[in-house]
């Protein structure tokens, strides 16, 4: 039986005490263990940033790549080894600034990747610049008079791009987050989980208290129906004094990208033994040029 301890790494996290990443880390390990997935059946792929150090602190296949590029790296993993459960960890800068283009394409492709965006509305590793999710007017070292950019709405973008699983969670509610992650891992295709996460060092506005006062289950919204895209598009626009969390949208009716790739019908290509071609195949290839 797989337990959370199987995912225990000897490496001690360097996150600040109280960092929201701890709750996300715990939830991921809990979800994977409860699904009975062993560390060698999982690949955690991240970009660069504080959130992206998570694979270093986890005993599982892990790949810490480039800022913004976790999704294409993970896509490559999934396309040759669809038997692996592939989970991307990005931050809001990593995933929604440099990586936003890739997210849109992953969503429209419905590639079988769980994308967990650690969203703390600030750049932590580079010490406190405003991020794509920072509220307009956020004062930071790169926006001393207050940011002019309006924040992105990742849920709305994902839905518009064709994502088939869109959720939001709060890192403090680790149990609820674990359940969402479990649903996402079992989902067919791309799943975005936007995780609201306090940055205890650089974000003095969006604190644990700030979130705790605002978050409530999206299922409490009238007419809650996560199978209805139009309902989800409306619910994704709720943000302010009250912030809904939970699964906004989910459909299992769209086949995942990897299910539709002809070369994968015979199984994961990454497991195909590599041998020189038999002479008749070589001859057939040459014949086209004679």
């Amino acid at each position: 039986m797989v337990t959370v301890k199987d995912y225990q790494s000897p490496v001690t996290p360097t996150w600040c005490p109280g960092c929201g990443n701890f709750g996300i880390h715990q939830a991921v390990k809990t979800a994977l263990a409860e699904l009975g997935l062993a560390p060698h059946q999982v690949m955690l792929v991240s970009g660069i940033g504080q959130s992206s150090k998570l694979p270093d602190y986890t005993h599982a296949n892990g790949y810490m790549t480039l800022h913004g590029r976790a999704i294409p790296c993970a896509t490559g993993v999934k396309l040759v080894r669809p038997d692996l459960k592939v989970i991307v960890h990005s931050g809001d800068g990593d995933g929604y600034a440099e990586g936003m283009g890739h997210m849109v394409h992953a969503a429209r492709r419905n590639i079988g990747i769980v994308h967990i965006a650690h969203n703390n509305q600030i750049y932590g590793l580079t010490k406190g610049q405003y991020s794509p999710t920072s509220a307009q007017g956020t004062r930071s070292s790169t926006s001393p008079e207050g940011s002019i950019d309006r924040p992105v709405n990742p849920l709305l973008i994902a839905l518009a791009a064709g994502a088939t699983f869109v959720a939001r969670a709060f890192s403090k509610n680790s149990r609820e987050l674990a359940d969402i992650i479990k649903a996402a891992v079992q989902h067919r295709g791309y799943a975005l989980i936007d995780v609201l996460q306090p940055c205890v060092t650089f974000n003095r506005v969006n604190t644990y208290e700030w979130y705790s006062e605002r978050v409530y289950p999206v299922s409490q919204e009238p007419g809650y129906d996560p199978s209805d895209l139009n309902w989800a598009l409306r619910a994704a626009q709720i943000w302010g004094d009250r912030i809904p969390v939970g699964i906004f949208y989910q459909t299992e009716d769209v086949p995942a990208y990897e299910e539709q790739v002809p070369a994968l019908k015979a199984g994961p290509v990454g497991l195909r033994p590599i041998r020189p071609l038999p002479p008749e195949k070589a001859q057939a290839l040459k014949a086209a040029y004679m």
Partner: peptide, 13 residues
């Protein structure tokens, strides 16, 4: 994305 996908595939063996 193209080279990152290739590198991801390479990382996956």
């Amino acid at each position: 994305a193209a080279i990152c996908m290739a590198i991801g595939a390479g990382r996956a063996g």
